[in-house]
Design a protein around this nucleic acid. Structure first.
Lengths: 97, 97
DNA sequence: TGTTTATATGAACAGTTATTCATATAGTTA
DNA sequence: TAACTATATGAATAACTGTTCATATAAACA
């Protein structure tokens, strides 16, 4: 039996906790193949600017999104392919239920 | 932009929410390639029988584990390969950070 | 039948979390 | 400079979650 150590288990659960909120999953969904600013995200997923910003901070802190400034706006995108991969695996699981 | 509909987003986040607790992740971890009863799980991961039972109920309800009765004991195992796949993808992501 | 063992469960509590609202910051443009 | 726009953030609140403790259930067996 290959037991993963406590610290790593906690990291893993923290990672999935990030994916465990529908607002964050919506944000991740719209950022697949897209680079969008905060207010675009807020409009598309129909969530308040403040709520989106709060959630982006969490996504940023866990390095699931990256961002770049351009003039007045801050454009967010997914940090790497892993994020999309995890999202899609979740989709698959749901679709097979 | 391929927007997944609200209901599915909620299902996906609910799925990941299950993986977002360290006790449940520990349970999933020990059930990879193993079929164990409640008290074995509790002993191995060092969590109270009650806490394990409560979490198994949640895992059962979301069809991530299955179980079978044998005499006095109830043996739990992972419901399908998807569960292990999601767990392992989480591991990978963590290991690459 | 009475005792032991394995599991489940309800209530209570403490801790966490997501949203809203108000406001701050900072860049842009008139 | 003043006004506007985009974003961030702190406080407050309401809702949710996981554990513990006590107890229930039910099977096994002496």
């Amino acid at each position: 039996m290959q037991l993963i150590d406590e610290d790593k288990i906690i990291d893993i659960s923290e990672l999935f906790k990030i994916f465990g909120d529908s607002t964050r999953v919506k944000i991740i969904n719209v950022l697949i193949d897209n680079e969008l600013c905060v207010c675009e995200i807020a409009n598309i997923i129909n969530v308040s600017q403040s709520a989106v910003s709060h959630q982006l901070r969490i996504l940023k802190a866990s390095k699931l999104v990256k961002y770049k400034k351009n003039g007045n706006c801050i454009y967010y995108s997914l940090a790497d392919e892993h994020v999309e991969k995890i999202f899609k695996l979740g989709c698959e699981h749901i679709n097979e239920l």
